[in-house]
Computed example of a mutant assay.
Amino acid sequence: MLDGPILKQAPTRPISRANNATTLGKEKTEVSVDKNRLDRWKATGVIGLRDYNLRAIPDEVWACGTSARVIELSNNAIPVVPAKIGCLSSLQKLFLSANDILDNSINWEALVSLKFLTVLSLDQNHLTTLPPALGLFTSLRQFHVANNKLSSLPNEIGLLTKLEVLKVNNNRISTMPTCIGDCIGLIEVDVSSNLLSELPETFGNLHNLKSLCLSNNGLKSLPSTLFKKCLQLTTLDLHNTEITMDVLRQTEGWESFDERRRLKHQKQLDFRVVNSGAFDEGADKS
C-alpha cells in the first residue's frame, strides 16, 4: 500500500536477473529437490524457488499437489506456465514476476481452475495482452502485471468484484475500460507510467479506493466524481501529469479530500516536524 506523498517515481525495472550465477555460486537451470525439501514443501504449503535461474517449473512442484498454497517463482527464466498448474487446486498465491512469459505461453484455462487463487503476480514479463478469461478469476484480490507491454485491459476485468489491488504500471495502456468501476472492492490502483490521457467517470464508483497512482501519464484532468464519491481516498500521485492545482481546486470534493490527506500525513509524521501540509503529490502549483 502506498503511504504518504509520492515524491519520486520508482525505477521502471527494479528486478534484475543479471549476475544470478555469481549470486548463487553457479548458474542453475534445474533444481535438485531432495526428499526433505519436498516434504517441507508439502508440510508448509510454501514453495520458494525465487532467483534460481530456472528455465522450467520443476516436476517436484507438481508432486506437491493439493498441499501447495504459495509458490514463489519470481526472478527466473521460466517461459511457460503449463496446464499442470491446474493440479495445484489449493493454490492461493502465485508469484511469477521477472520471467520470460509470453502471451501464448500461459495456460489460462488451467489458472482459472484454481478457485482459491487470491494473488497473481506477473510483473516484468513480455505480455502484450490479457485474455477475456481474466474475468473468471473471481477470487482474485491482488493482480500485479506491471512492467509488461500491455496496451489495454479486457472489459472482463470488471467481473473481479473482490479485487483489492491492481498494479498495471509501466505498460502502454492508453485507455482504461469503463467497467473498471465494477471492481468495487479496489483499494489500491497503480496505473502510473502508461499512455493515459483521461480516466473514465466510473472511477467514482470505487468507494473503497484509498490509493491512486497516476504519475507519468498525459492526464489533464480527473474524473469529476473522484473526490466526490471516493471518500476513502487519501493518497494520490500526480507527478509528471498535466493536472494543475487550479484543476484540482475546481474539482468538486477537493476540499474534503485535501483534509483527509492532511490528517493522514499528520498522523504519519512526528508532530514536531509537520510542515504546512501543502499538497505535494505532483500537481503543478500554477
Rank of each mutant, 00 (worst) to 15 (best):
I184L: 00
F203L: 12
P154W: 07
C179V: 14
N217M: 13
I187V: 15
H144S: 02
L196H: 04
S152C: 07
H207G: 08
L236K: 02
S192C: 08
L238F: 07
V168A: 14
L219I: 02
K210V: 03
D190E: 09
E188D: 14
S139T: 14
K220C: 09
L150G: 00
N205A: 13
N217P: 10
L150F: 12
T178I: 08
E164P: 04
L199M: 13
I187Q: 14
S193V: 08
E201Y: 07
N170E: 03
T161N: 14
L199P: 03
N148L: 08
V191Y: 02
T175F: 10
K229H: 11
T161M: 07
G181H: 00
L199Y: 12
L159C: 11
N170S: 06
S215C: 10
L160W: 06
L160H: 09
N171L: 12
E156A: 14
V191D: 03
L159E: 14
L134S: 03
N208M: 12
L195H: 12
S221V: 07
S211V: 02
T138A: 09
N170W: 10
S174W: 10
L233N: 06
T235A: 08
F203T: 01
S215K: 08
E188A: 14
T202C: 04
K228F: 09
T178C: 06
E201G: 03
N217T: 11
N147W: 12
L209Q: 08
I173H: 09
P177R: 03
L196R: 04
I184S: 15
P154G: 01
N217D: 13
E164N: 13
H239R: 15
L231Y: 01
T234E: 14
S197A: 10
L231G: 02
S224W: 06
N217Y: 15
K167S: 13
K162Y: 10
K228N: 04
S211E: 14
V145S: 05
E198K: 11
S224L: 04
L196W: 11
P132L: 00
D237E: 10
N205K: 14
P132A: 10
L209W: 06
G204M: 03
V145L: 05
I184Q: 05
K210F: 05
T234V: 07
P132S: 09
S193L: 10
E164R: 15
E156P: 04
V189Q: 04
L219K: 02
C213Q: 15
L231S: 09
N148W: 12
C213I: 12
A146N: 07
S151C: 06
E201C: 06
G204L: 01
G181W: 01
L195I: 09
L236R: 00
D190G: 13
C179Q: 13
L195V: 11
L233Y: 05
M176C: 09
I173F: 10
P154Y: 05
Q142P: 02
V145T: 14
L233C: 00
